[in-house]
Amino acid sequence: MQKQSTGYLFILPALMVLGMLIAYPVAYTGLLSVTDNAGNFVGLENFRRVLAARATPIAFWNTLWWVLGSIIFQVLFGVMAAILLNQNFRGRAIVRSVTLVPWVVPGIVAATTWAWMLHTEFGIINYMLTAPGLIDKPIGWLTNGNTVMPVMIAINIWKMFPFVAIMVLAGLQSIPNDLYEAARIDGASFWEEVWYVMLPQVRSVIVAITLLLVIWALNHITIIYAITRGGPANKTLITPIQIFRTAFDGMQFGQAAALSVMFFGVAIVIVFIYIRTLASNPEEAR
């Protein structure tokens, strides 16, 4: 007992600094959410207003699509790329490095580049599609309400799948070679090897990465804000951007804080459910 309390004494300074850095912003956001811009206490007024705003449910559904669409394909493409990069072929080292490029490029640079590539009149993508006659007239990727969200999701997938690929690849490389050989002797085809040897062995890696991706997608701002600012007609407005715009475009700090608090709550619940259902498998071999 004595020993334990001494231990606490030693970590107290660090705990205090951490506490300030983590607890203070959270507490201050909480405080902001129940005050107006002048600092007067207004009760739940900010919550009432922000929930009544037309943009809020739109942003909620957009966020849901954004997160689901991004995660599913980031993981899918990431794992496929990892399996591919784990094979033996000439030039593998180069392909591995090139794969990493989207992950290394700063988000704002990637966003600007993609915005230009997707430009309706001058973008290379429309050019490549119209020149050989694949489509008759240019598509307004970023102005058409039906294409803009899928395009944003596609850019996010492009940006993040290399991260998944590299992490899963590291997991795959830690699988001892004789497991593959044992599987071959047992009569496994390539796809059976993938399914019965590779994936189970990197399952915990995939679970952990998916959690990270969910958190990142939930908190995402850069790409969407840099390209569309949530437009057109709120088609790409996701909650973090709504918060950002409420605070800095609308100068409604109280409402932004109220939205943050609710968003924080929802995010915590999602992460908690995820960890409970997927990440904890007591039988997982190790």
């Binding site: 001892p176 004789d178 050989e181 044992a182 002797i185 040897v197 190790r286």
Partner: peptide, 15 residues
């Protein structure tokens, strides 16, 4: 139609 026993046993750890 052969079967092999490895030095490391190479048992599938997740099975």
């Amino acid at each position: 139609d052969i079967a092999m026993v490895f030095q490391s046993y190479a048992l599938y750890p997740h099975m």
